[in-house]
Design a binder for these strands. Structure first.
Lengths: 216, 216
DNA sequence: CTGCCTTGTGAAGAATACTTCACAACTCTC
DNA sequence: GAGAGTTGTGAAGTATTCTTCACAAGGCAG
């Protein structure tokens, strides 16, 4: 799937360079010379990522951020700022930008940021399965219990687990263990014990974070 | 539903007082004079909460914690320590205790801790609906998108939302909005716009926490 | 007022997820 | 090696969740 990028910069030379590089990377790129033009383009087609210059005649980059956000809340915005001012960058992020890069930059540095943000966008878009996996894993009360117990126990044999959970039907536990295993949260060691994987521990910590943040 | 509590303390007088108070609170209380006795009792019946004295002849409280944890990973453990030593308390928590209270304590202070921990236990047990609600809310990709968008937008009218999400069928969005509304995550203002509630913002922050913790 | 966009409901069906049951291999202990 | 407890599979049924469709009330511009 080709990903759409919009480059917003008033300097034609830089813009052209950027477009060239991005196209070579296999991305669909469009360009805008100012914020108003960009906003119009946003209306007609959605973009995955926007490269936004801060200093522009007319609506400047900083003011453009919330306007873009308003129309395209899921698009990743990378701001390009000529001043290595931390405040500037922080402010841009507060306005709703996702990342920033300081001019002048090397092309590789920019591409790194672009790739990172596209990946993040894909991830948040749910194209990456992982988020769904985590929520699927955590969506069920028994699976949460299993994660909780294994997080505390370290590891456990099957029937011990069943007893700790106080479940009558062991096959039910089995079912959920299989789900968790397929989600990559637990592993089944050679000694026949179940234990959390790294992902499992992360999921468990998500769980306790959520529990914590719900009891104020 | 009556909740089971186990009081572990070698001083008979204090133990009796505690039992009396807890029973008056409507709780099912059992008592043990030492750790070994307690561990035996744990085998036969599950407890929701354990009050554990630190200083005891034989196996002391600190060493008892992991043994109890091993057998009852979901039981809340409150340790009662006579020394107001922070290190002691921290160590106990590291061993797997959930809370601590410094002796001598007022009965009200203890009851506060007991109630707080029972509530937490209930919560983690899934008797409180809330956790399930959150996960149900977050379990679906479209609902996550909605939370994300509303978190960024602040508020949005229905068709705007539909367009931002790039969904063809508006009734599908409608369905998930209803789910989120019933979960208490969004509210439907009089001006016909949807916005996140406090719980909704919390859920959104859970979401971004999880997203963040999955991309290292 | 007419027509179009917005916003919403409810029911039917498709798709998933969960539970339960019947059964079997396997590992201990005696 | 007999028997009891452990561990696991798969199929069938049940419940829940999600999608889709058909339809309609209300608002607003021309």
């Amino acid at each position: 799937m080709m990903e759409n990028i919009l480059v917003i910069d008033d300097e034609e030379e830089l813009r052209t360079t950027l477009v060239e590089v991005l196209v070579r990377e296999g991305l669909a790129v469009q360009e805008a010379a100012n914020a108003d033009q960009a906003l119009t383009m946003l209306k007609s087609a959605p973009f995955h990522l926007i490269l936004l210059d801060m200093v522009m005649p007319g609506t400047d980059g900083m003011s453009a951020i919330p306007l873009i956000r308003k129309q395209a809340p899921r698009t990743r915005i990378i701001v390009m700022t000529a001043f290595a001012s931390v405040q500037n960058a922080v402010h841009a992020l507060q306005q709703g930008a996702d990342d920033y890069i300081v001019k002048p930059f090397k092309i590789e540095a920019l591409m790194l940021a672009v790739r990172r943000n596209l990946q993040k966008a894909r991830f948040l878009d749910g194209e990456a399965v992982e988020l769904d996996g985590v929520f699927h894993g955590l969506a069920n009360a028994m699976r949460r219990q299993i994660l909780l117990v294994l997080d505390r126990q370290g590891q456990s044999r099957f029937m011990d687990l069943v007893r700790l959970l106080e479940v009558e039907d062991h096959t039910k536990v089995n079912f959920h263990l299989k789900v968790l295993r397929e989600a990559g949260f637990i592993e089944h060691g050679k000694d026949k014990t179940y234990a959390l994987t790294a992902a499992g521990h992360r999921a468990a910590s998500c769980l306790s974070f959520i529990s914590g943040s719900l009891t104020p």
